[in-house]
Design a binder for these strands. Structure first.
Lengths: 206, 206
DNA sequence: CAACTTTCCGTCCGATCGGACTGTTTGTGG
DNA sequence: CCACAAACAGTCCGATCGGACGGAAAGTTG
């Protein structure tokens, strides 16, 4: 072993397996991003991953299992984004919360999650695979928020407001993303930060 | 050729055409609701509408045109929901706004719009058909809000908050809709009404 | 090193997709 | 009343879908 020019002339089975699976899942993720759920076919993924048809079907016997793996991948990426510690400057904790949630929603993984999400509405199998993951993500966001602002009497509510509101904002920006003139989302985000300060303050003195 | 048991033994061509088109569009709408975008195939719509293959293709030469018609249908339904006058009780105008927007989001037409929306992200043609409609809907909501609350210095901002927030809330309830235990959405809605009252009041005195 | 397992590969299959096509029925204008 | 156009119907086609299958290659173990 330890060749210099060869990437890995001899790999153990586990390594090969993991590498191939990762390539396939990443290819599926990319297909989901640029083509949507329907375009994420076995053939397209297989071609993009650069593996043979049988190889893909060997690792993921059915398309549903492939998509389930993509669900995990997407969740992992979003969790990674949320795990990144934000800068908690005193007096601007809620601004940091807005930025944190917004960063998650701007990540490509959110678009992929959105595709899976909508598709899961009418696909029981995908729904079953997606529901627990969504719950994990949900609690992860709330935990991240709690990490930024301390104990706040209305912390959970305001966090929920922020999540839902920014999600809606991100949705509205879906179609107008490329070539945004006034950047609607930025305005909403800035004003929500102000309002959030009001709401957090009012609740503190009430 | 005047049968008695026939509902309308002789109709003008325009009537027949309109009736058939309406049947087809409604069938496509139903397919979109219960099967999603990908399942809304020409065959499925044709079968559901009870027309022959050639008939559908005669009215809508391509699937894209069919979906464009569905876009208009969905927009019309949502506009109809928004046109319904809400009860503007003094001091609770913003509550009425929340209820109005929420009613729109609870309508099946929103689910259909969501399918089209997400699909449009990766489909330029659909996107082109959907963008102007979305703009119409957007302004319609703001107009409806303006009709409920009068001139409010931050009316547009608060309306936007409400739209985005409730949209996000509706999205979160997508997967857990059937068999809702605590009904997350209801809680959020109630608390947002309170917060909205605070935000509207604060801005009025500031 | 030989037997074995696992990963990888390419081809084939039935089903179904969107769309093209020709023929038939129905309403309309000269 | 009759020729014409439009609405309606059914069949066929190439492409592609998800999945099945048997064989070749790489890695593991006696």
């Amino acid at each position: 072993m330890t060749r210099v020019s060869e990437p890995t002339p001899r790999r153990t089975q586990a390594e090969r397996r993991a590498a191939t699976r990762a390539r396939v899942v990443e290819a599926a993720f990319a297909c989901l991003l640029e083509g949507g759920y329907a375009a994420t076919t076995v053939g397209a993924v297989q071609q993009r991953a650069g593996v043979a048809r049988g190889t893909l079907l060997h690792h993921f016997p059915t398309r549903a299992e492939l998509l389930a793996a993509v669900v995990d991948e997407v969740a992992a990426r979003r969790l990674q984004v949320l795990a990144d510690p934000a800068a908690p400057e005193p007096g601007q904790e809620w601004d940091a919360v807005v930025d944190l949630v917004w960063r998650d929603l701007q990540d490509p993984a959110f678009l992929a999650a959105l595709e899976l999400w909508v598709a899961a509405r009418t696909d029981p199998a995908l729904r079953a695979a997606l529901a627990p993951v969504q719950a994990r993500l949900f609690s992860a966001v709330h935990r991240a928020v709690a990490g930024v602002v301390g104990d706040h009497p209305r912390g959970a509510t305001l966090a929920q407001f922020t999540i839902d509101l920014l999600t809606g904002t991100a949705m509205a920006g879906l179609l107008s993303e490329p070539g945004s003139p006034g950047d609607h989302a930025e305005v909403v985000r800035a004003r929500w930060k102000e309002s959030l300060r009001v709401l957090a303050g009012v609740s503190a003195e009430a």
